[in-house]
Each structure stands twice: as C-alpha cells, then as structure tokens.
Nucleic acid binder design. Sequence first.
DNA 1: AATCCGCGCAACCGCTTCTCA
DNA 2: GTGAGAAGCGGTTGCGCGGAT
Length: 217
Amino acid sequence: MSNCITKPSGLRKGAWTEEEDSLLRKCMEKYGEGKWHLVPIRSGLNRCRKSCRLRWLNYLRPHIKRGDFSSDEVDLILRLHKLLGNRWSLIAGRLPGRTANDIKNYWNTHLQRKLNGRQRKYRAAAAVKITEKTIERPRPRTYSSNKCVADKESVTEKPKTPIDEGLQWWTSLLEPNCNETEDGATAVGSISSSPPSLFNGHMQHGWDDNDLWNLLV
DNA sequence: AATCCGCGCAACCGCTTCTCA
DNA sequence: GTGAGAAGCGGTTGCGCGGAT
C-alpha cells in the first residue's frame, strides 16, 4: 500500500507491496522457514520478524487455499471448535491449505454470527466466552524433548481415565446433536461433568493426535 | 450522484510459551 | 533455577469495497 506507515523504529507497517512479497518469497525459498528474527536481514525487508512471519504463513506460503470454505470444511470447523475452542492454529492444522487467520476470520464473520445472531461481535465484545473451565486444552503447543507432554500436574493429580471412557466422552462431544448453549458454546457439563483429559490421560495409553483425528473423520 | 453502513480480510499488538545459555 | 530472547498465538483493529439509501 502506498500509505504504508513507517514506525519510529524505521520499520514499515501496513499492507505489503508486491516487491516486498517477492523479497520474502525468495528469502523463504533460499533459507526455509524458521529463524524469523533473521528474515528481515536476509531478505532486506524493512519489516519486523512478526510481520514477515505472518505474511508468509497467511498469504505467501505455497498451497494456501483461498476463497470460500466448502461445506465439509465448515462442518469440520464447527466440530473442531466445539472440541478445541478458539484454538485456531490447532483447527487450521486439520484443514489443509487453510490458515489460522483465515479460519478465525471466517468464524468471526460467518459462523459466530450465525450461532449468535449478532453483528460485529468483536466490537460488541460479545465473543463466545470459552474459558479454561469449559475447554480442555488438548495438548501443549509443542512437545519438547525434555519436557514431554502437557501439564504434569494434571497427569499426576487426576485419576487415570480408562481409555474407553475417554473415547466415549470425546465421541459424544462430536455428535452432531451435541447440546449447545444459546451462544453456540458446547454444554460440556451435559455430557460429563469432568471430561477426561485427551492427552493428559490418553497419552499414557499411547494415544496421540492422530487418534483424535480418527474420531473426527 | 453522494453518502452511509456493514462486511471481509489483512495486519498489528500484546501476551504466553518455549528454548537456551 | 533463572532470565533473556525468539517464536507462536489469539484478540483486535483499520481499511477497502460493495450494497443500500
């Protein structure tokens, strides 16, 4: 954009130009993803690492799907959102070619309004309130080599959940007629007051992310 | 034709989490 | 064990566009 602002730090902000896209693309082709702090230097872009990363992930990365979401994709988003809440990156990981930002935007503009019957939810601060209490976080962001798995406390404190019980709970959650509240949030309590932890418990039985996927498809 | 208004999307911001020394 | 820097994420904002008035 021609009206692109320049920060006091000298870094550019605002919409990306074709020239900038080209520089970033070349840089990524040469060096690959990662080391984002080096990207502005390597590419010669006058942008912060966050901006570069976002532009690449949401727009320039190969095989990114653009355009309308198919009904299958929408259905999957709805189910995954019931399961994961606003964990857009996790949801995006299940939708090849779709980015977390795309899904988030789609949710906020299409689905949430459909569920809430409201407009401009963000501005009205009426976003679906998904809290730690209602959503069981399924996994840590990454699995580090030394800090294996999720939250150790819950692994030790919660009684071990039999795998069949866990499977049943998650399967119930994904049923299309699963109870919903007015604002579209899943009434978890109506299924079970204490959902079995997906990974805290199941990892101990050798479950992984693929098992969850098998439930969803 | 001009103006208003809502929508959709790209991008930014601030916070959390992770890694490593 | 701890602190700094990097990476990643979700929430929010700004702006352009198109339809309505």
